[in-house]
Structure formats: structure tokens, C-alpha cells
Deep mutational scan, measured.
Amino acid sequence: PKCKGCFKAIVAGDQNVEYKGTVWHKDCFTCSNCKQVIGTGSFFPKGEDFYCVTCHETKF
């Protein structure tokens, strides 16, 4: 599969995040607002966007 963030291949051994059939490298899975890496931490999906806890609390 290819990462939705950088469009490069995800190979065995890469740390990745999967959500609803889409996959990202862990470092490519970032907050849509502040761009900080969410990685495998908590996040809030809103449509096609993903927000870290801090930005979600501030924005919504």
C-alpha cells in the first residue's frame, strides 16, 4: 500500500497508522490544523481531516 501523506510505499517494518482502509506512515499522520505528528496518539476525525486533541478542543 501507499501512504496517503507522502504517497510512498509502506513496506514491512514501517510503523504506520490505518484508519478506515487508508494507511499513513506514522510520521505522515498529522493534525490538519497545527501539522504536528499525531502518529499513534489520540485524534478526532472530521470529514477528510484529522485533529490532535489540543486543536480539536480549541477549534470545536
Rank of each mutant, 00 (worst) to 15 (best):
P1F: 15
K2L: 15
K2T: 15
K2A: 15
K4A: 15
K4T: 15
K4G: 01
G5P: 01
C6I: 00
F7W: 13
F7P: 10
F7M: 07
K8T: 03
K8W: 06
A9R: 04
A9P: 15
A9E: 10
A9H: 03
I10S: 07
I10M: 10
I10C: 02
I10V: 07
V11P: 12
A12E: 05
D14L: 12
D14T: 13
D14S: 07
Q15H: 14
Q15Y: 07
Q15G: 07
Q15K: 11
N16H: 02
N16S: 07
N16Q: 12
V17Q: 12
V17N: 01
V17D: 06
E18D: 10
E18L: 04
E18N: 03
E18I: 01
E18Q: 12
Y19L: 13
K20Y: 14
G21Q: 15
G21S: 10
T22E: 10
T22S: 14
V23A: 11
V23S: 10
W24E: 03
W24Q: 04
W24I: 10
W24K: 03
K26V: 14
K26R: 09
K26E: 10
K26H: 03
C28R: 01
C28A: 00
C28Y: 00
C28Q: 00
F29Q: 04
T30E: 10
T30S: 05
T30N: 08
C31T: 00
S32R: 09
S32M: 08
C34M: 00
K35A: 12
Q36N: 12
Q36I: 12
V37F: 04
I38M: 13
G39W: 04
G39H: 08
T40Q: 09
T40V: 06
T40G: 11
G41W: 04
G41K: 11
G41L: 09
S42R: 12
S42I: 11
F43H: 04
F43S: 14
F44G: 04
F44I: 07
P45D: 04
G47E: 12
G47A: 14
G47C: 01
D49H: 15
D49L: 13
F50P: 03
F50T: 08
Y51K: 09
Y51Q: 05
V53P: 08
V53Q: 11
V53E: 08
V53K: 09
V53Y: 11
V53T: 11
T54Y: 03
T54P: 07
T54G: 09
C55N: 01
C55P: 00
C55A: 00
H56A: 08
E57Q: 05
E57D: 06
T58M: 02
T58C: 14
K59P: 11
K59E: 07
F60M: 06
F60I: 04
F60Y: 12
